[in-house]
Design a protein around this nucleic acid. Structure first.
Length: 832
DNA sequence: ACGGACCAGTTTTTT
DNA sequence: ACTGGTCCGT
């Protein structure tokens, strides 16, 4: 266990900035009074309530620089935590820029997770527990008692003490989600639990949730305990034991173990309280309970904690984030100074007003009045489309027009435009469309580089090379590429390992020697075991760089060959990724060092310089800004997401609303919101209602656009005569007028319906859209997309229709017309 | 042991 | 519509 002085020496080499006192303070010049206050108030707790686009990162960075500049703290005495690697990197860059020197000397600037890894590696041995009482306890018991052994055929020397205490070692591996699920699957199977009822994925979710809230099954509140099958806690305990045996931790443990150490070793806690003299937290509204405990423990002494956050941008409730943390700050830290940053530097007036209008529907906010000096600008644009493809088509064209500047505003480059979606599956429509029209795009936040199959496999090999006892890695690579080692062979290996209390490779070696695995598989396994040992020895060879070694491993194992032989269209890409992986090794001294960092640090930001539109989720967009933003898919059920509302009710809805707020406030100049009347969900067509958030947009800041399809160029126009075309134009005018008329909202309210633009066509001769009563069971009807059918059921405003071609569907009544009216009339039924 | 046919669940969001 | 998993025939 290290003392404070030892720790000082540990990181001391890279710093020393006391000498910087009394330097000039140019970094303060660009700040407004509120920002300055937050920066200069150095002692005691500070809460910076910073709205969207108010320069909170700037203020936080300036504060760090100010601490260093006034000599109040040295770089290693500042603990600055962020949530994402990107945010950490950005802050390092900014601090470096302000200091005029690289900020690499800021050892404690990073994500919660990366800081915890460092702390935990120092004190890993304090985490311990009993092992060996897992699924094989029956065997152990049988052996411990002198009774006749029913498992004799398993072989000798399988005895494991029931009470073997195992410590975490400082070179623990960090389990990623994939490994975690594989492990849970094994445990579930071993416990003889039905995988259908307890899918490993679900159990992983529950465990994550417990850990986010710093709960263990035994501490679970009674109200929740009953909700889980009684075997949940049992599995949890087995899982934790197994992790310890594997010398591994999962993401949640990273934090919780450190909290545990702080709670049980007051001397260590006291050291760190002295050590981290200033604590800064970005995005405080996103902290979960475990992180909150961690921070409170660390800040418990001096209370020099400065938290920055925006309660309106709390969008991570689903992974345990507690808005309550930020709302409670003043209570937690009495005497806290609260600074509000309210001047928005990002967006124009209309955009800001629209966002404020939406978010004002939320209750229990801390409340901020954002304002901007940027008056005027375009209103937020709102447009409805027939379906998702039409929406993608329109946005594609709009992007091209915006790029050329033919829309009447300044030309905006593709890099400055983004499409922000609620859920990643919405991205596909845009990718499809953009591929066909050749519009360059980039998807942000897709599968992380290191989560890709080929990367994970390669990492498995590297892990085996650096530490041969990594059983999880062995399982991953033993039959990849195919070596003819199936379930049977792997079971044999498992039992050899378990009987002898050794790792899987060792078990494999024993199995080979015993001739337990025959034929081709046996030979291949022998070779694999030998190769692994040989590569392991090569790590110590000074003549071979770790990059060469990596290539040797991938080539000789046959892994690259496997992809070369694969004729899937994506295999070249995978080989490309492998090359990149090897290239990434450059930045590390050895494989070991690389592996330690990779799961936390590697990300996918290929900074290609080409101009591309960004497509990402709203979550991924937090902290970013773009001159032009498109927000498609504003439909009830999709956004706000049905699932979110089902699971968390009003709380869920409010979080969705904050997400809408985040989305709108990403836009600097142009913000375009759109929704579609029909969308394919699970491969089925569904009618969609515009999002309730659409109604919450303040009318005076919104401009309603008319989709081009209404001019007769769109759906089914071929079948139409002159007359219907004209009437659609009229309908569109009525629609736009209706939207902007003051009576619109009231009309909606009376109808008890949400944002149904169609309702405004009150005078339209086509159909009485609010009255489903006008339909009768069995009536023959027409639907624009599905064709003719008969009404099979009526539920509120939805009709169940048995379509002749498309099968039975539930559709909203207003998309249906009586078939007697004919197809031409149905054309008018097109909502937008 | 492996590949193909078939079936079920899936679509929030992620360090 | 797509994926990933399981079952079954080779």
């Amino acid at each position: 266990m290290s003392t404070f002085d030892e720790m000082d020496a540990f990181d001391g080499a890279s710093l020393s900035s006391r000498a910087m006192a009394a330097r000039p303070t140019p970094y303060l010049d660009g700040l407004n009074p509120a920002q300055r206050e937050a920066v200069e108030c150095l002692d005691g707790p500070v809460l910076m309530l910073a709205g969207a686009g108010t320069g909170k990162t700037k203020a936080l960075t300036a504060r760090i620089v100010h601490l260093l500049n006034t000599g109040s703290a040295r770089t290693n005495e500042i603990l600055a935590v962020t949530f994402t690697n990107k945010a950490a990197r950005e802050m390092k860059e900014r601090v470096g820029g302000m200091l005029g020197q690289p900020a690499e000397g800021m050892p404690w600037l990073g994500t919660f997770h990366s800081v915890c890894v460092k702390l935990l590696r120092r004190h890993a041995e304090l985490i311990c527990g009993e092992a060996g009482v897992g699924p094989d306890e029956v065997i152990d018991e049988a052996r411990d008692s002198e009774s006749p052994n029913p498992y004799e055929d398993l072989g000798p020397s399988a005895v494991r003490s029931r009470h073997r205490t195992v410590h975490l070692k400082s070179n623990f591996t960090i389990l990623d989600t994939d490994d975690q699920i594989r492990l849970l699957k094994q445990l579930i199977r071993a416990a003889g639990i039905d995988e259908k009822r307890w899918p490993p994925r679900m159990l992983a979710g529950i465990i994550d949730d417990w850990k986010n809230r710093a709960l263990t099954p035994d501490k679970l509140p009674a109200s929740e305990a009953g909700a889980y099958n009684h075997r949940g806690p049992e599995l949890y305990a087995q899982y934790q034991r197994r992790l310890l045996e594997l010398n591994a931790v999962d993401f949640g443990d990273l934090l919780l173990h450190v909290v545990t150490i702080f709670q049980t070793h007051s001397d260590i806690l006291a050291q760190y309280q002295r050590w981290f003299r200033y604590i800064m937290v970005d995005e405080y509204q996103d902290t979960n309970i475990a992180q909150y405990m961690w921070l409170r423990l660390l800040a418990g002494g001096h209370k020099n904690i400065c938290c920055v956050g925006d309660d309106d941008q709390s969008i991570y409730g689903w992974r345990g984030a507690e808005v309550g943390n930020i709302l409670r700050f003043e209570k937690d830290f009495p005497g806290a100074k609260v600074v509000r940053l309210e001047q928005n530097y990002r967006s124009t007036e209309h955009i800001l007003a629209a966002a404020s209008g939406v978010i004002s529907a939320n209750a229990g906010r801390l409340g901020k009045e954002l304002w901007t000096a940027a008056k005027g600008g375009e209103k937020v644009r709102l447009i409805g489309h027939w379906d998702g493809e039409e929406e993608a088509r329109w946005i594609g064209e709009e992007i091209e027009a915006t790029q050329r500047g033919t829309r009447g505003q300044r030309p905006i480059g593709l890099n400055d435009m983004a499409i922000l979606v609620r859920a990643s599956h919405q991205m596909r429509a845009f990718e499809d469309r953009f591929l066909t029209i050749g519009l360059p795009y980039r998807v942000i936040g897709g599968p992380r580089f290191y989560e890709r199959l080929e990367i994970r496999d390669a990492m498995g090999y590297f892990r085996m090379v650096t530490s041969a006892d990594d059983d999880l890695a062995f399982e991953r690579i033993v039959n990849t590429p195919k070596r003819g080692l199936g379930d049977k062979a792997q079971q044999t290996i498992q039992s050899f390992a378990r009987e002898n209390g050794v790792s899987l490779v060792e078990g494999a070696r024993l199995a080979v020697e015993a001739g337990a695995i025959k034929g081709k598989g046996g030979a291949a396994l022998r070779r694999l075991v030998e190769d692994l040992a040989r590569w392991g020895r090569m790590t110590g060879d000074a003549d071979i760089s770790h990059m060469e070694l990596a290539e040797i491993v991938l080539d000789e194992s046959g892994y690259t060959g496997m992809w070369q032989a694969d004729k899937n269209p994506d295999s070249p890409g995978r080989l490309e990724n492998l090359k990149e992986l090897v290239k990434a090794l450059e930045n590390f001294e050895n494989l070991q060092g690389f592996l330690e960092h990779v799961s936390l640090v590697m990300d996918n930001d290929k900074q290609d310089s080409d101009q591309k539109v960004s497509i990402m989720t709203l979550h991924a967009a937090k902290g970013l800004e773009f001159p032009a933003v498109f927000l498609p898919g504003w439909e009830d059920g999709l956004f706000p997401s049905q699932r979110s509302m089902d699971e968390s009710g009003l709380k869920g809805l409010e979080e969705e609303r904050r997400l809408a707020y985040v989305g709108i406030t990403r836009a600097e100049e142009v913000c375009t919101i759109s929704f579609a009347g029909n969308r394919r969900v699970f491969g089925q067509w569904q009618s969609q209602l515009p999002s309730r958030f659409v109604d919450e947009l303040p009318e005076e800041h919104v401009e309603v656009l008319t989709p081009p399809g209404l001019y007769g160029g769109g759906y089914g126009a071929a079948a139409s005569s002159d007359e219907p075309v004209r009437s659609t134009i009229e309908a569109k005018v009525a629609q736009a007028d209706g939207y902007n008329s003051p009576g619109w909202k009231r009309m909606q309210a009376r109808a008890g319906q949400r944002g149904n633009l169609q309702q405004k066509q009150a005078g339209s001769p086509i159909i009485d859209l609010t009255a489903t009563a006008s339909f009768t069971l069995g009536e023959r009807v027409f639907h624009q997309k599905f064709g003719y059918g008969a009404i099979a059921g009526i539920e509120g405003d939805k009709l169940e229709v048995n379509f002749e071609k498309a099968g039975t569907k539930k559709v909203v009544a207003r998309f249906i017309s009586a078939s007697g009216a004919g197809a031409e009339t149905a054309q008018d039924d097109v909502p937008f």
